[in-house]
Write a protein that binds this DNA or RNA. Structure first.
Length: 729
RNA sequence: GGGCGAUUAGCUCAGUUGGCUAGAGCGUCUCGUUUACACCGAGAAGGCCGUAGGUUCAAGUCCUACAUCGCCCACCA
């Protein structure tokens, strides 16, 4: 018996209530689905982990897009009858979160982190994180995301802490984590090391100065950073360079701007004869390349710039900031008549992604992950890497993708990935902040101890540094499933099925998940990676505060409903390309929401005396069903290939312009006619097709379809649409 | 410096292994208040598929150059 539908879908009032219904059903958890007989006990699994948003974050369109995309896929897979699991979680985002709280404390209390001390600061940051955690979680629910909240994980909760410490220890024991004094990217503003991937290059104009250290030094060198030259210990030339051959091996004592230097002339293949004077002043402590040259020639490596980007030398440069020192030196060079030329050049300056500060290369004692070191892998499911064979982390990263164990259907991202692997260097994992996973290393005199728990006995002190936030993120596919315990979840749901990150974090995150999963489990972390693009505004610009073009997804939901927002984000561009977001599109899909609402309303009005039956259809109706099966086929095919946009568009077109505009219109006569049998067949056909259409629309527009589905007079069940079966082809 | 992508209707984009008389949504225009829907319906206009070559029976689709825009990687000091 058909119920009367309200005139319009009131999404503001209904969406939250529908979400609650889903959540209370327990069907976001595949185990509950099995328990209730909705899914077979040994059905195939389909697992996705949510890229964890920062706890302190607020939902933005990027999240909204990611949530829509993954939810569409997970809902589809659930309807296919798989044990579909989507795991929610949040990330502590060490540097970002601490920086935010420090700023707040500075502003409100005028204190810095040292005034508070480690314990107090960590407490305050944790509290702050805890408070804002709920905001983002509520907002994710607003999108309709069908996440299994019973498995919620946070990078700093107990289980994840254990996972991180265990991962560190096992890699340390395997010799893949080491402590080493090397050049790092130092952020003088954030007072911490940052990884290569957190450095952004900015093109700026700079001056290239060419000069000699002193009057009696025979060779001129060029540099854009004269202030580092007080740290020079050598001048390198190409071994074949005729101009300088006679000086190779000679050593000179000079006084450069009050600083005595001992310079050795060396020959090194890495020097370009044609650049500048063909001679390179070697500053081992403040240049990555020079550090490597120093390795080859066993040069001393005096540090002349400190953590605050100030000079560490005596004399007129003493205590000066880098830029001031540069001016001072240039002035001195001019006075002494040593400056041969000054040239404007375009130069890439390394800056910190987080703080914007100019990165200072400094030698520091840091913790590293060795990506090249060979180790014996006890168990491996990665094609091309045998259990018990010798391999390296880099090899794991390469083989996982090249073998197709991790599928990256988008060729261009595969290229970017392998190119990146080729150039990969050791990964610096220590950070000089306080909020995060503290490195599980303890020191006592000359002893070093590594374990998940502190050592027995007195006199030990723990390493001060915390781990790069990506270290814990890299464990995410299996730490969320209970690793290092050998849980049932881990056996059943890992490797995960699908991951859809933004292309921005391909290197930062995807490759490192592959690394960690490969090392600790001998598995790939996921079987398919679909990289997605960025959400941009109508003009193709990034959303940013300074442009004032921000769009708050929650306001869009308030105005047009979550279903319309999801469609607006998913339709119109293929996964992998940037999404241009436009309100008029969202508005269009809100109209579509109303359309399918009214289609259902009209149907119900014409089903007054309808009873579901098994009678064969009139042949004209059967023909319409057959045509519909083609749509099912197309949509299913597109879904399977992750062509979400095409699938949604096909459905949009069918529902509106075929079903509503043609089929329904043409049914009016039959409905009002006297041929009872004809009418029954028509009603039957309409209900069946419309039910299936709602099913297929459900992954895209879960709220309105769920609501409408409950009104349809169907023969079989009245369970939630969310767990109905995908239409058969 | 190296690599990658984009370029199709006014706008945003589809076009899957070459078969296209090139599509959709939005926008525009004309007509229509038929009891599902004006958050609607019927219809229309609008494209040398960036440029130039090439391969092919056939090219928006493959190849080669070029142009414009965009992205990524890279410490030529």
């Amino acid at each position: 018996m058909a119920k009367e539908l309200p005139k319009r879908f009131n999404y503001q009032e209904t969406e939250d209530e529908i979400y609650k219904r889903w959540e209370e059903s327990g069907y976001f958890n595949p185990e509950k689905c099995v328990e209730d007989g909705i899914v077979e006990k040994d059905a195939e699994t389909f697992t996705v982990v949510l890229p964890p948003p920062n706890v302190t974050g607020v939902l933005h369109l990027g999240h909204a897009y990611e949530d829509s995309l993954q939810d569409a896929i997970i809902r589809y897979q659930r309807m296919l009858g798989k044990r579909a699991l989507w795991i929610p979680g949040t990330d502590s985002a060490a540097i970002a979160t601490q920086a935010r709280v420090e700023k707040k404390i500075r502003k409100e209390e005028g204190k810095n982190r040292h005034d508070l001390g480690r314990e107090e600061l960590v407490k305050r940051v944790s509290e702050y994180a805890k408070n804002s955690e709920n905001t983002i979680l509520k907002q994710i629910r607003k999108m309709g995301a069908s996440l299994d909240w019973s498995r919620y994980a946070y990078t700093l909760d107990d289980k994840r802490n254990l996972a991180v410490a265990t991962a560190f220890k096992r890699m340390y024991d395997a010799g893949l984590i080491y402590r080493g004094n090397r050049i790092v990217n130092w952020d003088p503003k954030g007072q911490t090391t940052i990884s290569d991937d957190e450095v952004v290059h900015e093109e700026r104009k700079a001056k290239l100065y060419t000069f000699k250290y002193s009057k009696d030094f025979p060779i001129a060198i060029s540099t854009t950073r004269p202030e580092t030259k007080v740290g020079d210990t050598a001048v390198a030339v190409h071994p074949d360079d005729k101009r300088y051959k006679k000086y190779i091996g000679k050593e000179f004592d000079v006084v450069f701007c009050d600083v005595p230097l001992h310079i050795k002339v060396i020959a090194d293949e890495s020097v370009e004869k044609d650049f500048g004077t063909g001679a390179l002043g070697v500053t081992p402590a403040h240049s990555y390349i020079d550090w490597e040259i120093a390795d080859r020639h066993d040069l001393p490596r005096p540090q002349v710039i400190n953590e605050y980007a100030k000079m560490m030398v005596e004399g007129r440069l003493s205590g000066k900031k880098v830029l001031a020192a540069r001016e001072e030196i240039v002035g001195w060079l001019k006075e002494e008549n040593l400056l041969e030329s000054e040239e404007e050049v375009e130069q890439n300056v390394s800056t910190s992604e987080r703080t914007g500060a100019i990165v200072e290369p400094l030698p520091k004692l840091q913790w590293w992950v060795d990506v090249d070191k060979k180790f014996k892998i006890p168990h491996s499911e990665i094609p091309g890497i045998e259990s018990g064979s010798e391999t390296s982390l880099k090899e794991i990263m390469r083989r996982s993708v090249e073998s197709g164990a991790v599928k990256m259907p988008q060729e261009r991202f595969r290229k970017i990935y392998s190119h990146w692997i080729d150039n990969l260097r050791d990964w610096c994992i220590s950070r000089q902040i306080w909020f995060g996973h503290r490195i599980p290393i303890w020191y006592r005199d000359d002893e070093i101890y590594c374990d998940v728990t502190p050592p027995e006995g007195d006199g030990w002190h723990q390493e001060e540094d915390v781990l790069d936030t990506w270290f814990s993120s890299a464990l995410w596919t299996f730490s969320t499933l209970g690793w290092p315990e050998e849980t049932e979840d881990l056996k059943v749901f890992h490797p995960t099925s699908f991951m859809s990150p933004a292309y921005e974090i391909l290197q930062l995150w995807i490759s490192r998940m592959i690394l960690m999963s490969g090392f600790h489990l001998g598995q790939v972390p996921f079987k398919t990676v679909m990289i997605h693009g960025l959400v941009r505004d109508e003009k193709g610009r990034k959303f940013s505060k300074s442009l004032g073009n921000g769009v708050d997804p929650l306001e869009v939901i308030e105005q047009y409903g979550a279903d319309a927002l999801r469609m607006g984000l998913l339709v119109g561009s293929n996964v992998g390309n940037d999404v241009k977001f436009s309100m008029s599109q969202v508005k269009g899909y809100r109209n579509f929401t109303t359309k399918i609402w009214n289609v259902t309303r009209f149907l119900l009005m014409n089903l007054k005396n309808y009873e579901p039956s098994d009678k064969p259809l009139h042949k004209e109706d059967q023909k319409i069903v057959d045509e519909f099966k083609n749509v099912v086929k197309d949509v299913t095919k597109n879904m399977n290939k992750y062509r979400i946009s095409n699938a949604a568009e096909d459905l949009y077109h069918y529902a509106w312009h075929t079903f509503a505009d043609e089929i329904l219109e043409n049914s009016k006569d039959i409905m009002q006619g006297d041929d009872k049998e004809r009418k029954e067949s028509r009603q039957h056909m309409l209900v069946e097709i419309w039910a299936d259409t709602l099913k297929m629309l459900h992954p895209f527009m879960p709220f309105v379809t769920e609501e409408l589905y409950g009104y349809l007079p169907l023969k079989s069940s009245n369970k939630l649409l969310m767990v109905e079966s995908w239409p058969s082809q």
